[in-house]
Design a protein around this nucleic acid. Structure first.
Length: 970
RNA sequence: GCGCGAGUGGCGGAAUUGGCAGACGCGCUGGAUUUAGGAUCCAGUGGGAAACCGUGGGGGUUCGAGUCCCCCCUCGCGCACCA
């Protein structure tokens, strides 16, 4: 090898070495030579879906960050668990199979091979012996096993935890009704159950879709086919039982607050009251209607406004609509409900500005004042939330207010707004009460109850409590908690997923396979298309697994059973992979107890256990809600059943920001090719700020001239040119259509893996969304070249002449001090995932050593150690070269260098001298210098004297080692 | 509409607790070396001739504000009739 820095050759050499020596194998408790005295660190990436496109630059961003931390922790003496696997079930491979006929397993294997090869190029220190794929039989065996645990348990409300189904108490009256009744009772309490639920049904794809697989236009994300809401019998997981724990137990986690908030919002816990409204005989209809026990139950968070309830609204799907509607309103109501049924929920929400609705002709009795109030049907009330019916209080709710003003329904003010609010809206209290509809908005916040019987005069919070008690005493209502979260729709009509370990008996009996019967492997089929069958008029999904007729039929004890033909959603495999990584080869358990306890339990500084065991879980924000919520739910079930030892899986969570791309467009808003844009003199040109290019083009098309638009929008500075015309820079998502996708493999080939790693970390804060600038990559490459030339003689390839072989020790020189600072700074920055500033500190050190053209051998070694967490390839090579014949093994387990706190602090510092807060001069002083000495020196400084202009100092603020501020009058 | 986050040179960004704004890198300018350079090295680089002015805009607190408070603007993300 010649002496020049050759990243490609170095990469190949060390990649092979690490592979051969299994350098990053992590030992488990019980393994020979496992060192139990070391602390552990479990550092985990969101595992990828191995798509056909291979790695994009977003993958290495997170993976490099965790790799730096993993390498650092290893050098700090931790046992590190750092692993990689594949979330490989899912729709793309199946779609590919539909198009090409290639089995999804083949596509998946090919894609995994590409991903693995590309990841290995980047030098990540994964324990590749622990690699797993959710599609491995050995893996999904245990996914099915966990499903069986969920299926075979129920939620005990008193203990607030899951328990084995065998422990479910069966009420005597159920028992007395026989085996079938008992079976149905049990099935109705399982955490996994079959239910008829409204789902997103896409006939063209032949499958049910999750909400997030449906676009805002009510089309399928794949293929853009229409999607309808319809009831279907599907597998559900009872996640709602865990709503409180999922919300409350977020508290202790070291997670971004934004993610916690998103999860809490998704769970959507709100406290209020359920209130019963009797249905009244309609005045126009006379007697005979609404007799018996008919009542409408509503949920409200504002029971204090009950006296202002002037009408009620039912969702169009509400079961009582038909009963309540009077004959003369029937046609209108039916038409309205029919129209609502044919619009997706999303379409209904889209035109939320316009309230629609129709009067049923029926009335209900307001339980607090016995007033009859009209019952309407309107689609702003959703069947899926609360009871599907509301009491409408126009004065306390913005939507009710809008509806009331639109349909001219009475508005009764029952909450007195604060005076400030009234003043803000230019009305007096009397004017507001007399005519609240005159304003464009009602008052919906907390105030003081008025015209409200027993709660009149009480502030909102107290009024809520008192009226709830009042209702409870009279049997009219009770305190309730409502959640937005729904049970988890857990089945898909697809081939490429985990089969359910479930049999259906001839009489509708649901039978789970024994634990010893899993894995239930996917059968081979020749056609992956889902289809529909017809049951009467109904289209019923026929999942592709139905084609495996032999597989699907099972005979037991002379009875014929049909296998469940649905498969599990892609989320299933990712719900527990972090547990399998602890013990991936275990054949008898989903994870060995000892391994689980070692890797998943994490101690806090005070010695107590952290609620969640994984020390760092890092990935994109796109999984902020669903994946993390589902995985937490499974984990809690496993905890309740005694299978895992922590209540939460992910102690610390971090979201990396998205890497985007610069894009350039000209004054007409047309994109120009990025690689032909040049930088020139900054000029000020008319600019269409606030427009994106599409909006701009639309504006031009709609008749505005370029000049008119420019006059309207002002000017901006640009220094980018395309064909001598100034162009504007914007930041966009990388996309195939804009042709701005950066391929990491190309960057590796051009600059080396270390440069790619370093650049991705140097771009900016890990959590920030930031643009990829190809122009900046050579900067970090040059840094690595400088490191190389500092330590290696380019002509001979032996150790550089800059290296001074003086023994370590002796009086600390400036470089030694800087090295100690660098070691401290880089270590701290790694811990807080601030890699960009750590890299800049290393650059400063190299610049300094380079300026001096001299570095001691022991300093060189310590610096290489620090750099090795970031740039593993070049540092392995340098480590070997620095040691010559004495070299033994990889740098990866060398101890992280220690810094001396005394050498990190400078004794003498330059501090600013300010006069009235403005800089007047600088002074080199001892850190511990007393104020009077510093002040005396400062006052003698000519520049300071000039600033003071002879005025007396009335006050002086001195922060030792930081600054001195002299305050003068005037 | 509601919630969260952000706005700093020509560009990416730094400033961890209210204490020298612009670290580090890119780009640019000048010089050295070189047959040549998209290589390397050295120096300079917020604006302004200067006094001074400068962290989206306006106000405030403070000896002192990029950082804290109030109002507004812009961008990004999330939720979106959740009663």
């Amino acid at each position: 090898m010649s002496g020049e820095y050759n990243p490609a050759a170095i990469r190949e050499k060390w990649q092979a070495y690490w592979d051969q020596h299994k350098s990053f194998r992590a030992l488990n408790p019980g393994d020979p030579s496992f060192d139990a005295s070391k602390p552990k660190s479990y550092i985990l990436d969101f595992f990828p879906y191995p798509s056909g496109a291979g790695l994009h630059v977003g993958h290495p961003e997170g993976y490099t960050a965790t790799d730096i931390l993993a390498r650092y922790k290893r050098m700090k003496g931790f046992n590190v668990l750092h692993t990689m696997g594949w979330d490989a079930f899912g729709l793309p491979a199946e779609q590919h199979a539909l198009e090409t006929g290639q089995h999804p397993a083949i596509t998946t294997t090919n894609n995994i091979n590409t991903f693995r090869r590309q990841l290995k190029m980047l030098g990540f220190s994964y324990d590749w012996d622990r690699e797993l794929s959710t599609t491995d039989t050995d893996y999904y065996k245990w996914t099915q096993w966990i499903f069986l645990q969920i299926f075979n348990s129920w939620f005990d409300e008193t203990q607030k935890k899951a328990r084995p189904i065998a422990e479910l108490p069966i009420p005597a009256d159920v028992k007395s009704r026989g085996d079938k009744a008992v079976r149905e009772f049990v099935d109705a309490h399982r955490l996994a159950y079959l239910a008829e639920v409204p789902v997103n049904w896409c006939p063209a794809l032949g499958t049910v879709l999750a909400n997030e697989e449906v676009t805002n236009e009510g089309k399928s994300e794949r293929g853009n086919h229409p999607v309808f809401k319809r009831p279907l019998k599907q597998w559900m997981l009872r996640i709602t039982k865990y709503a409180d724990r999922l919300a409350d137990e977020l508290e202790e986690l070291h997670w971004p607050e934004a993610v916690k908030l998103m999860q809490r919002n998704w769970i959507g816990r709100s406290e209020g009251a359920q209130v019963r409204f009797q249905i009244a005989p309609s005045p126009s209809e006379g007697e005979g209607r609404g007799e018996g026990h008919d009542f409408i139950e509503v949920f409200t968070t504002r029971p204090d406004t009950l006296f202002g309830a002037t009408y009620m609204v039912l969702a169009p799907e509400h079961p009582l609509v038909e009963k309540i509607t009077t004959p003369d309103q029937r046609a209108a109501v039916q038409a309205y409900c029919h129209a609502a049924a044919n619009r997706s929920e999303l379409a209904r929400a889209a035109d939320a500005k316009e309230k629609t609705g129709v009067f049923t002709g029926g009335y209900a009795i307001n339980p607090v004042n016995n007033e009859p109030i009209p019952i309407w049907v309107a689609d702003y009330v959703l069947m899926g939330y609360g009871t599907g019916a509301i009491m409408a209080v126009p004065c306390g709710d913005q939507r009710d207010f809008e509806f009331a003003t639109q349909f001219d329904l009475p508005i009764v003010v029952v909450v007195r707004p604060p005076d400030a609010w009234l003043a803000n809206h230019n009305v007096t209290f009397d004017e507001y009460v007399a005519n609240p509809g005159a304003l464009s908005k009602g008052f919906v916040d907390d105030g003081v109850s008025i015209n409200s019987g027993p709660i009149t005069g009480l502030p909102t919070q107290e009024a809520k409590k008192k009226i709830t008690v009042w209702l409870e005493e009279r049997g009219l209502g009770r305190r309730t908690i409502n959640y937005k979260i729904r049970d988890w729709l857990f089945s898909r009509q697809r081939y490429w997923g985990e089969p359910f370990p479930i049999l259906h008996g001839p009489d509708g009996e649901i039978v789970a396979l024994d634990e010893s019967d899993v894995p239930l492997t996917l059968p081979e089929i020749s056609d992956y298309h889902p289809t529909v069958t017809h049951e009467g008029d109904e289209e019923v999904p026929a999942p592709p697994l139905g084609r495996a007729t032999e597989w699907a039929t099972v005979t037991r004890n002379g009875k014929t059973y049909r296998r469940e033909l649905n498969t599990m959603p892609q989320w299933a495999g990712s719900c527990w992979y972090y547990l399998r990584f602890c013990d991936p080869k275990n054949a008898s358990r989903f994870v060995g107890k000892e391994a689980e306890q070692y890797w998943m339990q994490s101690k806090k500084k005070d010695g107590t256990h952290h609620v969640g065991g994984i020390d760092l879980y890092l990935g994109g924000a796109e999984h902020a809600v669903l994946h993390l919520l589902y995985a937490r739910f499974w984990h809690k079930v496993l905890y309740d059943l005694g299978h895992v030892s922590t209540i939460e899986p992910f102690g610390r969570l971090f979201n990396q920001g998205m890497i985007r791309a610069f894009a350039y467009y000209d004054k007409r808003g047309v994109y120009v090719p990025s690689d032909e844009v040049t930088i020139g003199e900054p000029v000020t040109v008319p600019y269409v700020g606030g427009f994106d290019s599409q909006a701009l083009q639309d504006a031009i098309k709609s008749g505005l001239t370029k000049q008119e638009i420019q006059d309207f929008v002002g000017t901006a500075k640009t220094s980018f040119y395309y064909q001598n015309e100034p162009v504007f820079q914007s930041v966009e998502k990388m996309s195939k259509s804009l042709k701005n996708v950066v391929n990491p493999e190309k960057v590796v080939n051009e600059y080396g893996a270390d440069s790619l790693r370093l650049y991705e970390m140097f771009m900016g804060p890990l959590e920030a969304s930031k643009p990829w600038n190809p122009r900046d990559v050579p900067g970090v490459f040059r840094f690595l070249q400088r490191v190389w030339r500092l330590l290696v003689d380019e002509n001979t390839g032996s150790i550089s002449t800059y290296i001074d072989n003086a023994p370590a020790g002796g009086p600390p020189d400036a470089l030694e001090r800087l090295l100690h600072k660098t070691i401290k700074k880089v270590g701290e920055d790694i811990e807080r995932l601030a890699f960009n500033t750590g890299i800049s500190a290393m650059m400063e050190f190299v610049n300094e050593a380079y300026r001096a053209k001299s570095i001691r051998m022991d300093q060189a070694e310590r610096f290489v150690l620090v750099l090795s967490a970031f740039a593993p390839f070049i540092t392995e090579e340098l480590w070997q070269r620095l040691h010559g014949a004495a070299w033994k093994t990889s740098i990866a387990y060398e101890p992280w260098p220690v810094f001396d706190p005394a050498l990190v602090e400078d004794d003498e510092v330059e501090i600013p001298i300010q006069v009235n807060g403005k800089l007047a001069g600088r002074l080199l002083v001892s850190k511990t210098a007393p104020q009077d000495a510093v002040q005396a020196t400062a006052l003698a400084d000519p520049k300071v004297m000039e600033k003071l202009a002879g005025k007396p100092v009335v006050k002086a603020i001195y922060v030792p080692g930081r600054m001195l501020n002299l305050v003068v009058k005037g």
